[in-house]
Nucleic acid binder design. Sequence first.
RNA 1: GGUCCCGUAGCUCAGUUGGAUAGAGCGCAAGAUUCCUAAUCUUGAGGCCACAGGUUCAAAUCCUGUCGGGAUCACCA
Length: 584
Amino acid sequence: MNIFKEYGQATKLFIRAMVEKGDLPEGLPLERISAEPPRDPSHGDIAINAAMVLAKPAGMNPRDLAQKIVTELEKFEGVEKAEIAGPGFINLTLRNKSWQTQVKLVLAEGEGYGGSSLGVREKVNLEYVSTNPTGPLHVGHVRGAVFGDALANVLEKVGYEVTREYYVNDAGSQIDTLARSAYHRYGEACGKDMGELAEGMYPGDYLWPVGHALKEEFGEKYLEAEEDQWLAIFRDRATAAMMELIRGDLEVLGIKQEVFFSETKLHEGGGIDRAIEFLEKKGLIYEGVLEPPKGKLPDDWEARPQTLFKATEFGDDVDRALKKSDGSYTYFAADIAYHYDKLERGFKQQIDVLGADHGGYVKRLKAAVKAMSDGEAVLDVRLCQMVRLTKNGKPYKMSKRSGDFITMRDVVDEVGRDVVRFIMLTRKNDAPLDFDFDKVTEQSKDNPVFYVQYAHARVHSVLAKAKAAFCNEKFDDYSLQQADFELLDDDSELALIKAIGQWPRVVEQAALSHEPHRIAFYLYDLAAEFHSLWNKGNDNTSLRFIIEGEAELTKARIAMIVAFARIIGSGLKVLGVEPRQEMH
RNA sequence: GGUCCCGUAGCUCAGUUGGAUAGAGCGCAAGAUUCCUAAUCUUGAGGCCACAGGUUCAAAUCCUGUCGGGAUCACCA
């Protein structure tokens, strides 16, 4: 249970009661009431803004209103004191017991602690990665992949039903290029001199096995054949092979998406026609000529009539072309159809995770979804900024193993999956991120992954020592729930416990704002709280976790740090990182 | 030129969807250390939150404009 929410709800109940009694007018903006931890801990545990938010619409003095609420809140058993501060804040100080109980809750609920049913099982479609199937994942793709996956986890934790999806761009001209590149390798596999690989082809050696497989399958059948005889089939085989490769890459990162949606199927199955027809019925399609873009014109710009979608009616800057001059559909048309398909599958909440280079694409996507759903569905597009690879602060070039880029596997091989995943979430998605190969593997506070893991490992170690010191006591989660939590009354212990109590709130906020990085930052802060407490035990041995001869006290403290470790564990799980028992 | 993102401590960045005296880490200065081990902790110095207006009880946060940095810009994908 989220303790902040609890008191926020309670406040709202009082207000409603007051409205019913006629003490307050109807129609107050109750949704603006928040119960949050105050920035300054000396202000108490929970700050409620109700009086300030409601004073004006209620036509009351904020402090008078606050006084009424305070009188009610004071009656709560868990509240030690409630006071009015500043312009009308209501500051609650909870009894220690209210916090200490959280420890027991964590142990009882285990990984479920921090979860909620906020999402009421609403379906969310989360599309991420979606790289062109023309080669293995490279570093640039990792961030979006990790971001999307962690976001999916967070959303699930608060009760959304998330579908993790990958849009396979297997229809464009880049696939023809892929097929031709594969053909080149096929020729070579057959022992023919193919000369130099033409400009613009995919040079990576990951196409070698594809060439060989094609030789296995077709022998020399297509060696002298015209392109139109083999192109389609090579496209098909090469894409399948690339998707196989990409799935393998994703698995290395620990990512599993359940839907792989093919653009080609959209073309072949008439999905695009259907979506366009749908828009046409709404009167949102017309033939027209676009204004030339402002500023510098592209060299080959010319006015031409096109099939256009009225994107401007839904917030876009210009209307967007749906057909090329040869009559075939544009990429955007396919994308409209794809999002239409998501709507047909019942997704009112859609999230696309894209690279920052797609920034200019966001408005038209949102416009399309808005238009097709009559504003019923929401599309959120999260853009992930660049990752700059560095080593010791200098731009880093790795040996290029497959073609002309650094692959995701290169990075994971070098530093490990957990490090990659965690570091990718130590920055907001829309801020660029430096990935320094030295820093991320360094064992120091500088490196958040290490810092958090270290705290977790310390708990594990203490637990083992406690078991050895008290062989007659049990330290499993159930036994620990029976501990006397009121013994945890030192300020620094309470500080750790209060930090633990923030977890449900953090999860909720990360989920609602679609910002999984908040989890990573929270875990770091939480770990800091633990390390701090640990070191107090160095100064003052009475604050150590294991106190010889004091079984009850030791049990309570072990319960506290085990609860701490559970939070770290479930937080890391959300990020897709394995918590470590030891650091060596 | 249009659009989107960014501008917070010397550096790298958080900032609880508008809250009270703006926070961490690195670096700098001083100190501590037998539970995981100087891998950690404590204390200190360091800020016109780019700038100017506006909205209100309250703005780093929302709106407008200016300046600076990045991305992107008709049929590509």
